[in-house]
């Protein structure tokens, strides 16, 4: 027996609508919960003062700096590596067993739990290479963690550039590198930047990989070899050791607002860029 199409339409519509509502509701609930618990603790002093007494008092300034430096380091290392790999896979080699192995490897890398990256970074960078618990160890570890995301999104973005653009570029007398830099990358940029923004979000929120490699010093880092604490590590330690739930939620609120802010800003800039190029 066939269901009346109008009934079907209404049932499916209602079902899909409620799924969407649940998704959005969960998101809104989490954000509202954290902000409600955390915002009362956040004032100007909270942002610009260093933690006092293990974080029981004072603000979170040094952990904001730690987060920014560590994330920036990871992005600076992972972006050239990831975009370069993506360009190689799409433009400089034919599809074959080798590219499939590289892609499979990158995908496996993406599935590894972050704590394993932390352990790997600890063994390689902290102990073997003697970087110690430091910004350097932490950034490199985060870079490897986000590399698969950047490769993957960049590759998709580059692949979605119409093949005709490449032919035209070649026929107008471009070398392959000119074709890549002047035609393919500008067209692929929105997709590549999306991948980078996702990676920024992951880096900022990462705890396990960072705590093993960058440590948890509360001072403002003085050099690449200083240990440093990120906001998420700070939140973890404050909550875990019961130091101050108020300040823990305060940190979480700042984290969430920061990530939302970065996303909004990026999409705004992206829209301006796309308008300019098309």
């Amino acid at each position: 027996m066939r269901v009346d199409p109008r009934v079907e339409q209404r049932v499916v519509g209602a079902l899909l609508w409620s799924m969407t509502v649940v998704t959005v509701a969960v998101l809104v609930f989490i954000i509202a919960f954290v902000l409600k618990k955390g915002l009362p603790a956040v004032d100007w002093g909270f942002l610009v003062e260093n933690p006092v007494d293990m974080g029981k008092g004072g603000g979170i300034f040094s952990t904001i700096i730690g987060t920014i430096v560590l994330t920036a380091g990871a992005i600076l290392v992972a972006t050239p590596l990831g975009v370069g790999t993506a360009i190689f896979l799409t433009e400089y080699t034919w599809e074959g067993p080798v590219t499939r192995i590289i892609r499979f490897g990158a995908e496996c890398l993406a599935g590894i739990p972050s704590i394993i990256f932390g352990l790997f970074g600890f063994i390689l960078f902290v102990t073997k290479l003697k970087f110690g618990w430091s910004i350097l160890s932490g950034s490199l570890t985060l870079a490897f963690m986000i590399l698969p995301t950047i490769i993957r999104t960049s590759e998709e973005a580059i692949k979605s550039v119409p093949p005709g653009f490449r032919t035209v570029s070649f026929s107008l007398g471009s070398t392959k590198w000119q074709m890549v830099t002047r035609v393919v990358l500008p067209s692929a940029l929105p997709g590549i930047v999306t991948g980078i923004v996702l990676s920024v979000g992951r880096s900022i929120g990462e705890t396990a990989a960072v705590i093993f490699t960058a440590g948890s010093a509360l001072r403002i880092p003085a050099s690449l070899f200083s240990s440093s604490r990120t906001m998420s590590v700070h939140f973890y330690i404050l909550a875990r050791e019961g130091i101050s739930m108020t300040n823990a939620y305060g940190t979480a609120a700042v984290l969430i607002v920061a990530i939302l802010g970065i996303n909004i800003l990026t999409y705004y800039l992206m829209h301006r860029f796309i308008r300019k190029y098309s």
């Binding site: 653009f165 035209v168 026929s171 107008l172 007398g173 190029y277």
Partner: peptide
Amino acid sequence: VVELRRKLGMVFATPVPLPR
């Protein structure tokens, strides 16, 4: 080859303006 392609300009069946 780059020089060669500049010397023999080509127009394709589907016009492909670059996005600029």
